[in-house]
Design a protein around this nucleic acid. Structure first.
Length: 191
DNA sequence: AAAACGATCTACT
DNA sequence: GTAGATCGTTTTG
């Protein structure tokens, strides 16, 4: 695994490209001296124009401001008393982001289970946008966080072992508008 | 100031 | 499958 965070150039591209290529990358959280790492397996693209499901669709507000920020920042928003984590894409000034919907824990699994407050083993650890935030201790304080610095929270490129998995596209979850668009990306094992 | 809503989750049947 | 919890943001009065 690389030790460098993905650079701003990775994020400063079309949102769909970023959403697809984030699949298979590693989401890394450093808390204290410990690393919590998971493989990104599910993302959703929220597009800068014509996407009525996007929080940025109706213009800039205080709460969605970081979605309009520099690519490579994070956008963390509240939903139903939980948090969800996005990475900002495209260029500064347009509302574009990729929602990270699921990771497969690879390091610090015991800590993630603890963070989730799970009572039963074998439960879902970090699949689902709010569960992932709970497992990695991501909250609103990370809204606007710079993911390209490699401190506290960042993303690293994954094994470029394409061939071990493929990425499929489906409609987004819980989105009532724009159902015809397949903007959700899911990692599926080959075999 | 109050109420409604939401890119959700858990627990239970 | 369904019901209820949860709380910041937005809208309404």
């Amino acid at each position: 695994m690389d030790i460098a965070p993905l650079p701003i150039g990775f994020y400063a591209r079309s949102t769909i490209d970023v959403a697809r290529e984030l699949i298979g990358c590693h989401l890394v959280r450093r808390v204290g001296g410990r690393l919590l790492v998971g493989l990104i397996v599910e993302t959703e693209a929220y597009l800068p124009r014509g996407d009525s499901a996007s929080h940025g669709y109706r213009g800039r507000t205080n709460s969605n401001a970081s979605m309009f920020g520099r690519p490579g920042l994070s956008y963390v928003y509240p939903i139903h008393a939980k948090w969800c984590f996005n990475v900002v894409t495209d260029r500064e000034g347009v509302p574009a982001a990729v929602l990270i919907r699921g990771i497969e824990p690879s390091l610090g699994i015991a800590a993630m289970i603890r963070n989730r407050g799970l009572t039963t083993a074998g439960g879902v650890i970090a699949s689902g946008p709010a569960r992932l935030c709970q497992a990695l201790l991501i909250d609103r304080s990370f809204d606007g966080w710079d993911l390209t610095v490699g401190r506290r929270l960042w993303i690293q490129s994954g094994d470029k072992d394409r061939g071990s998995f493929r990425t499929i596209r489906t409609p987004r979850i819980g989105v009532t508008s724009a159902q015809h668009r397949r903007l959700r990306f899911v990692r599926v094992a080959n075999g």
